[in-house]
């Protein structure tokens, strides 16, 4: 897909994500919208995918910030891994689209996540496992910037460098906000670029909403090192009243707000 097509796809996915959260009556729109472009770039222009979600050859995606899953569900439905009608049953009893991704219930989910910090550890183990099996699979993960306050992330980062996992790419979705305020107020992350370099990663810093930059960064990285792409993003990206608003971490829009979101996202 070219940049225009990716942007159009991302617009549709964002719209679907907001519709899903509104219908469910709960969810996490802010972080979903900040991470959407990265997921769209990976699923439509980068990852090796196969229609059988159990095909061993596929690249793997770990949404370590599992609460941002509605866009991922919309992508999986668009790709045909789950029926499209399931999107209206997000967070509903006996349906596969759980509040946080569940690999046992939802085809195409490569890793159950939701407890912050664990996804990146499992992603690191997956990349290590593929190395042990001498398989060429790549593992892509998105962690939140607030998420890396969890100590296990740094244990994993250390291990990823120690085992020279150049088949692992970690996006840090740096939207600067978390539940109780900005990341600087809650627990400042400091010089992330320097920290990730010090932990042994090849590091890129990009605009996480610019497909040219996302795709170009994905072509970089260094042999023998895990790759970290720090993506500057806007929490709530694309919906005017959600952008950079702390309050939109974990609540659903009401009917009126949904109408505004639809207008912002330019639904045809």
């Amino acid at each position: 897909m070219d940049k225009k097509q990716l942007e159009e796809k991302a617009r549709q996915i964002r719209l679907e994500a907001v519709e899903m959260i509104a219908k469910a009556g709960s969810g996490h729109p802010g972080g979903s919208l900040s991470a959407t472009d990265i997921m769209v770039a990976l699923y439509y222009s980068k990852m090796a995918l196969y229609m059988d979600p159990n095909d061993e050859r596929r690249d793997r995606f770990v949404l370590s910030k599992g609460h941002s899953n509605p866009p991922l569900y919309a992508i999986l439905a668009d790709k045909g891994y789950i029926p499209k009608e399931e999107l209206q049953y997000l967070r509903r009893l006996h349906h596969p689209l759980q509040g946080h991704p569940d690999s046992a219930k939802c085809p195409g989910i490569d890793c159950s996540t939701g407890s912050l910090g664990q996804g990146i550890s499992v992603a690191t183990g997956m990349a290590l496992g593929f190395k042990l099996r001498k398989m060429p699979n790549k593992v892509y993960a998105i962690v939140g910037d607030g998420e890396i306050q969890e100590g296990i992330c740094w244990e994993s980062f250390m291990a990823a460098a120690h085992y020279k996992l150049d088949n692992l790419t970690v996006f840090i979705d740096r939207n600067g906000l978390q539940i109780d305020g900005t990341t600087d107020e809650v627990m400042s992350l400091g010089d992330l670029n320097a920290k990730m370099k010090a932990f042994g990663f090849a590091v890129d810093e990009i605009d996480g909403h610019d497909f040219d930059q996302i795709l170009a960064a994905l072509e970089r990285g260094e042999a023998g090192k895990p790759h970290c792409i720090i993506a500057d993003t806007v929490k709530g990206k694309g919906v005017s009243f959600m952008e950079n608003a702390v309050g939109w971490h974990g609540k659903a829009p009401n009917a009126e707000q949904l109408e505004q979101a639809r207008r912002d996202l330019g639904g045809k």
Binding site: E56, C111, G117, S121, V122, A123, M126, L128, I152
Partner: peptide
Amino acid sequence: QDLIGLAAGIARAGL
């Protein structure tokens, strides 16, 4: 913590 996370990932990679 990472010991268990790595093991989970290694299992997901088919080992």
